[in-house]
C-alpha cells in the first residue's frame, strides 16, 4: 500500500468526523464529554445534536457511569476525554462498563508521546497495559485519520464495550478512505521477509521510514485491534520470518508488544523485541523529538532491524 499524499490530519479528527456522521446515521448514538469537547473533537457532534450531547464537566467517573446508564437503555454512548484522565474512572470502566457488558464506547485522545508539548502528565503511556486486562473490552488504536473514522463506525456497530486509543498529532495517511474496518483484523502494509514488524497508531510512520533503504524488505503489519488480537495473521507472518519487532507509542509493559509476546510464547516461540517507552515518564517536546529521545524514532527502529537481521542468535527449534 502506498502512502497517499493527502493533507495531514489526526486520528482524533477522524473520530470527530465519524461521530458527526453517526449522529445522522444512528439516532441512538449519543456523546459525552468531560469538558474537553473541542480537544477530543466531539464538538462537531455537540453543535449539531445538542440534545444528544451530555456535558459531564471535569468529572470523568460520572461521565463513564452516566454513559453506562444511557447504554443500558439502548443508547450508543461515545464518552471521550484524554487517555490519562480516562484512567481516573478505571473502577467505573471495570464494573459498570465491562462487567455489565454495557455498550459504551470509551474514547481517549492524546495518547502516547505523540501528545507532545503538554508533557508527561498528559502523555498516556500506560492505558493499553491497564485496560487490556479487562474482560469484554475491545481495544483499537487506528494509525491515521481514515482508519480512525472507519474504526469509530465499526465501534458503533459492535455490541459491547470498545476503547478507542487516539492521538493529537497530525500524521500521514496510509489507509484508503474506502477501506472497511474489521475489528480483530490486522493489515499487511508491506509483504516482506526475515523480520515481521508489528505496530499500531501513527508511530507506523516511523516504522515505514525505518524500513526505507534496507537491503531487504521486512514484513510490516498494522495491528489496530490490540484486543482481540489477530492471532492468525500474526502467527502466519511469524512462522515465515521467525523474528518479530513490535513498535508502540506506549510503555513497553502491557502494550501491543505484550499481547504479541503472550501469543507467540505459547503458539510459536520466536525472538520478539518490543520497542516502546522504557518504564519512565517523558517530558515536553515535539512528537518527533520525543520519539527520537525515547528511542521510538525511525533511526532506533532501523538500528534494531539491522541488529536482528544480522542474526544475533535465533531461537533454535
Amino acid at each position: 500500500m502506498s502512502a497517499e499524499k493527502l493533507d495531514q490530519k489526526s486520528t482524533r479528527q477522524g473520530y470527530g468526523q465519524a461521530l458527526l456522521e453517526l449522529g445522522k446515521e444512528n439516532k441512538n448514538v449519543v456523546a459525552l464529554s468531560a469538558d474537553l469537547t473541542e480537544s477530543t473533537c466531539a464538538n462537531h457532534f455537540a453543535e449539531k445534536y445538542p440534545h444528544r450531547f451530555f456535558q459531564s464537566g471535569v468529572a470523568e467517573q460520572n461521565m463513564i457511569t452516566m454513559a453506562t446508564g444511557l447504554a443500558l437503555e439502548g443508547k450508543v454512548p461515545f464518552a471521550s476525554t484524554f487517555g490519562v484522565f480516562l484512567l481516573r474512572a478505571l473502577d467505573q470502566i471495570r464494573i459498570s462498563v465491562c462487567y455489565n457488558q454495557a455498550n459504551v464506547k470509551l474514547v481517549a485522545t492524546h495518547c502516547g508521546l505523540a501528545t507532545g508539548e503538554d508533557g508527561a502528565t498528559h502523555q498516556s503511556l500506560e492505558d493499553v497495559g491497564v485496560l487490556r486486562s479487562l474482560p469484554n473490552l475491545v481495544i483499537i488504536e487506528p494509525c491515521d485519520y481514515n482508519q480512525a473514522l472507519a474504526a469509530t463506525k465499526a465501534a458503533a456497530s459492535w455490541k459491547g464495550p470498545v476503547y478507542l486509543r487516539l492521538h493529537r498529532m497530525k500524521s500521514e495517511q496510509f489507509t484508503n478512505a474506502k477501506e472497511e474496518f474489521v475489528i480483530g483484523k490486522a493489515q499487511l502494509i508491506e509483504k516482506g521477509s526475515k523480520i515481521t514488524i508489528i505496530s499500531s497508531g501513527p508511530i507506523l510512520n516511523e516504522v515505514i521510514k525505518a524500513c526505507g533503504g534496507l537491503k531487504f524488505k521486512p514484513e510490516i503489519l498494522n495491528c489496530p485491534t490490540i484486543k482481540p488480537l489477530d492471532n492468525k495473521t500474526i502467527l502466519n507472518s511469524a512462522k515465515k520470518t521467525n523474528q518479530v519487532i513490535v513498535v508502540q507509542d506506549h510503555q513497553i509493559s502491557g502494550g501491543l508488544g505484550s499481547a504479541v509476546a503472550e501469543l507467540l510464547s505459547e503458539k510459536y516461540p520466536c525472538k520478539v523485541k518490543i520497542i516502546g517507552v522504557k518504564d519512565s515518564f517523558a517530558e515536553s517536546g515535539k512528537p518527533e523529538e520525543l520519539w527520537e529521545k525515547y528511542g521510538l524514532s525511525a533511526k532506533t527502529i532501523k538500528k534494531e532491524i539491522l541488529e536482528m537481521s544480522i542474526g544475533k542468535k535465533k531461537v533454535q527449534r
Binding site: 449519543v30 440534545h51 444528544r52 451530555f54 467517573q61 460520572n62 457511569t65 452516566m66 454513559a67 453506562t68 446508564g69 444511557l70 447504554a71 443500558l72 437503555e73 439502548g74 443508547k75 454512548p77 473502577d91 467505573q92 471495570r94 464494573i95 459498570s96 462487567y99 455489565n100
Partner: peptide, 25 residues
Amino acid sequence: LELSSASLGQGLSVAVGMALAAKLD
C-alpha cells in the same frame, strides 16, 4: 437486577444516565 453493582459510588450515576435516556425518549 438492572445493574451489576457493588463498587460504591457508581449506582446513582448510572441511574442519572438511565433517567437521561428516559427524558431523551
